[in-house]
Design a protein around this nucleic acid. Structure first.
Length: 887
RNA sequence: GCCCGGAUGGUGGAAUGGUAGACACGCAGGACUUAAAAUCCUGUGGCCAUAACGGCUGUGGGGGUUCAAGUCCCCCUCCGGGUACCA
């Protein structure tokens, strides 16, 4: 009998579909539940590539295993289908994005089904479905109607917000302003990239490194537009501490920590000569105030214009304008050569009342801290660079902890920057009474901060890099905001019962001239009038793609619910997600954004857990072989010939080097899973994806490697499908030992997501069984169950051939029996001074003394001792013997 | 620059501080076949060596800890990913 994978796989896929084998159980009384989630894909026109099934296979194995362990498993799939490509295709061809999206989803669904993944397809969701995004809009309304209570560190309904009396007095408008200033969703000016030639807003990804638009090559500019923003920064601290107890890779936690970027320091107020206002800076080193010899404010800083003196105005204005035209990259490129101009104005250093010049420079960013810094060139490398270039004074205030006298001298003279610890010098002033000389960094920070607070000149402050989230896009293909802007300036949101607000049909998907979303062209949709005849205009921005993916895991719990976002009882049962697997590219943004929404929903009592994802795992990227010539030119894979393990250019015959690179269209090294399944079958694809190496590392795809697992599956089928190899009766002890070792190994490996070694254990067992020639009926049943999570089609087929009529999906996972694993003897490796020389078979029950005497009595030991007496013999029971000889 | 990973045969990889190279690919030889494919069997880190044995060496480089290091510590090199002046 041959391994006809095509027939087998088609047959079982049909069986599973017809029997709804993977339908999520409705019974919510089973205390064992497991919610296994994949990062759902964006259904691109190119279809699935082999990177997708890597994570999907891992979660599928885990889900199938958990079902056999008696868990209620929720394992759903859906589509994150809003996005730019469908919209751009619409601009080019006029095809409505919903049509493109539907086609792409159909392709993805077909491809995924052909992999035999055990999703509950009744729960399929699509972020572009109005029945879905109705609730995305609903969540936006909740965000809009929530404020963050700093004392409680918690989001609360706007209805709970107390309006201060002094604001109430100012009237309705001021009250509304006050409330708006606290909402988690707010409407404000924000900068976007704008291509003046295409008259379109560009995403960051569309702007090339040289500041040009990737589509037309023209230079993009920054443009201010009214945008929706979300106040994620309020949640910085909770986002930082929230994952401490979650089972996430440390690397991902680190990346999120860095992204949130908590730093402690102080805000310090500097007076400004000749002006009434104050210049506030944030610093992590208030202890270095005595070393502050100048100040820098960001070009975009509110005070720039006010501070600048008439004599310097031209220069400063020119500089500010030049900065605004620079792309972020230009700004960082020039990092090596700092730029800036003097404002003509001086600030007063609060510790000694000395005037220091205020400069404008683009190395200070408006979005972080207060947008202004005090510069301490002696102890900050950036300030040092700047001071050197513009000949500003450098005053060393810390005696450096260095032994090199030359270096010490350079530092003390201000010719080298010192950023480490040391005792303070030059850090006292009799007029203000502060003195930290002689202290070290930690004590210095404390003393100065206390002094500043006492004198009301500043305060201890925690700062975060995390900035508010720009939450609108000037696009058609996204969730419309349920928002109306009225002619009198009022903004209102739609009522819950008015949702979903659907997208209008359009003739053209091009944006408006001013940078407005294409929705501005939908006249009928756009204009509204209320019952009193007041005219209004709908919000024309749409939500970013993140919106749909921020909460999809919640909708899977109750996808068909038309009454509410989901049923509370079901949510309480299924949440949190027990295992979440996806690419590391979402390590920061998606995970941070969805955690933020989840925390708001938690604060509002809508969800029952503070964090959504209990265990997170990131699969590594799958790369592919690519080829390059001696000069490093990349050659498409279809122009490469292989001869005797070497690679040649098919056109000019030159030898090429095989390298490993990301799959890309231009290298023609993209592997399509359809090609693999048609040649080797879905089980082989699944197995190979898992056999390639550990799930979390990047690894190259090698078509040749698929053969290995294909051979294994073929051998498995031929062995177990042949009734001559199966007998009834007692199993051979060696097989029994191998089988129970296998169960234990595979079980442990699935629990720890180490799928590659589980497969090799199955191969080892099959090799043993084939060597023995026969296995018992019981063994065959057990083996098919162990194989089932990995290669479900083949496992079902063998299970059926063994006489079972029902699917083995819910068969209990076999229990391993330690008794069978026990050994009578152990072959001790014997080493001399750590080098293994021979091995000796001894009973596992042997005592240390017995082992030592048996080893030393061995003639080979006599030879290695060479007449010397061992100074020590290390015996690790059932592991190793090491004889130590001192020379 | 900074942060996070990583480096093991021709290749993908395995190895709770305890026999390095499991398992597989590839390759070589053999069986079957008119032949090929498929399948099955044997061998396969390198070097030396044998009738058979056996020995030396070996996890990017250099130090260290240990009875024992691919694994732990320090320094260096190279590769991959992330990030961009965060005060």
């Amino acid at each position: 009998m041959d391994y006809n994978f095509q027939q087998i796989e088609k047959k079982w896929q049909k069986y599973w579909e017809n029997n709804k084998t993977f339908k999520t159980p409705d019974d919510l009384t089973n205390p064992k539940k497991c919610y296994v989630l994949d990062m759902f894909p964006y259904p691109s026109g190119a279809g699935l590539h082999v990177g997708h099934p890597e994570g999907y296979t891992a979660t599928d194995i885990y889900s199938r295993y958990k079902r056999m362990k008696g868990f209620n498993v929720l394992h759903p799939m859906g589509w994150d289908a809003f996005g730019l490509p469908a919209e751009q295709y619409a601009i080019q061809t006029g095809t409505h994005p919903s049509i493109t999206t539907r086609n792409n989803c159909d392709t993805f669904r077909r491809q995924i089904k052909e992999l035999g993944l055990s999703y509950d397809w009744d729960r399929e969701i699509n972020t572009t479905d109005p029945k879905y995004f109705r609730w995305t809009q609903w969540i936006f309304i909740q965000l809009y109607n929530t404020w963050f209570d700093n004392t409680l560190q918690k989001g609360r309904p706007i209805s709970d917000l107390e309006i201060p009396e002094n604001i109430k007095k100012l009237g309705k408008n001021e009250v509304a302003k006050y409330v708006d200033s606290l909402r988690l969703a707010y409407y404000d000016n924000a900068q976007v990239w704008w291509c003046p030639s295409c008259r379109i807003v560009c995403a960051n990804e569309e702007v090339l490194n040289d500041g040009s638009h990737e589509k037309c090559g023209n230079r993009v500019e920054k443009k201010n537009l009214r945008q929706w923003m979300l106040r994620i920064h309020h949640y910085a601290e909770r986002l930082l501490t929230g994952f401490e107890n979650l089972d996430w890779p440390e690397g991902i936690k680190d990346m999120q920590r860095n992204w949130i970027g908590r730093s402690t320091g102080a805000e310090v107020d500097f007076g400004i000569q000749g002006l009434d206002s104050k210049l506030t800076v944030f610093t992590t080193r208030p202890d270095t105030l005595f070393g502050a010899t100048y100040m820098v404010i960001a070009p975009e800083h509110k005070l720039t214009e006010i501070i600048t003196t008439d004599a310097c105005r031209d220069e400063v204005e020119k500089y500010v304008k030049a900065t605004s035209l620079k792309s972020d990259l230009d700004r960082t490129d020039l990092a090596k050569d700092k730029t800036g101009v003097f404002t003509g104005r001086y600030a007063i250093n609060p510790v000694n009342n000395k005037p220091i010049p205020i400069w404008v420079a683009d190395y200070v960013l408006t979005g972080y801290g207060t947008g202004a810094i005090m510069a301490v060139p002696a102890h900050d490398t950036r300030d040092f660079e700047f001071a050197k270039k513009f000949n500003l004074p450098i005053l060393c205030i810390q005696d450096p902890d260095v032994t090199d006298n030359d270096q010490k001298k350079r530092i003390l003279e201000g010719n080298e920057c010192w950023t480490e610890d040391g005792k303070y010098i030059n850090s006292s002033d009799t007029s203000t009474g502060i003195d930290i000389n002689g202290l070290n960094k930690e004590a210095g920070i404390k003393k100065i901060t206390d002094w500043l607070e006492k004198k009301n000149l500043g305060k201890a402050k925690v700062n975060y890099k995390l900035r508010d989230w720009l939450f609108s896009r000037q696009r058609y293909w996204g969730e419309p905001f349920p928002v109306i802007h009225w002619e009198d300036g009022e903004i209102t949101l739609l009522e819950e019962k008015e949702l979903p607000l659907q997208l209008p049909e359009l003739e053209k998907y091009l944006p408006g001239e001013s940078g407005e979303s294409p929705l501005a062209n939908a006249d009928k949709w756009l204009h509204v009038t209320d019952s009193k005849g007041r005219k209004g205009r709908r919000e024309t921005n749409t939500m970013p793609q993140w919106a749909g993916s921020c909460w999809y895991y919640l909708r899977f719990i109750d996808p068909g619910n038309d009454e509410m976002i989901f049923d509370k009882v079901k949510e309480k049962y299924w949440m949190p997600v027990d295992l979440y697997i996806g690419g590391a590219e979402h390590a920061v943004l998606h995970l941070l954004y969805s955690r933020f929404w989840h925390k708001v929903l938690f604060d509002l009592g809508i969800v029952s857990t503070d964090e959504p994802y209990q265990k997170l795992f990131n699969q590594g990227m799958i790369l592919a072989f690519a080829y390059e010539s001696e000069t490093g030119m990349k050659i498409p894979a279809d122009q490469v010939l292989e001869r005797d393990g070497k690679f040649y250019h098919s056109e000019n015959g030159t030898e090429l080097r095989q390298i490993v690179a990301k799959m890309s269209k231009s290298l023609k090294n993209v592997v399509n899973p359809d090609d693999v399944t048609s040649k080797y079958g879905a089980d082989s694809l699944r197995l190979y994806e898992m056999f390639m190496g550990p799930l979390d590392v990047t690894k190259p795809w090698d078509d040749k490697g698929v053969k290995g697992v294909f051979n294994f599956l073929g051998r498995t089928f031929r062995f177990f499908a042949n009734s001559e190899n199966i007998f009834t009766g007692n199993e051979d002890p060696e097989i029994l030992k191998g089988l129970h070792h296998l169960i234990k190994k595979v079980e442990g490996d699935i629990e720890n997501l180490r799928f590659n070694t589980g497969i090799s254990a199955m191969m080892i067992f099959l090799n043993l069984a084939m060597k023995k020639g026969k296995v018992s009926y019981e063994t065959a049943l057990t083996f098919s169950k162990v194989l089932a999570p990995y290669a479900p089609h083949l496992a079902e087929e063998i299970w059926q051939l063994l006489g079972n009529s029902r699917s083995l999906t819910y068969e209990p996972w076999p229990a391993f029996n330690e008794e069978y694993l026990k050994e009578d003897n152990f072959e001790y490796p014997v080493s001399f001074n750590g080098k293994t020389r021979f091995s000796i078979l001894l009973p596992v029950s042997a005592t240390k003394e017995e082992i030592i005497s048996a080893v030393l009595a061995d003639e080979r030991a006599v030879r290695w001792l060479d007449g010397k007496t061992p100074s020590n013999v290390i015996v690790v029971p059932n592991r190793i013997v090491n004889v130590v000889i001192k020379n």
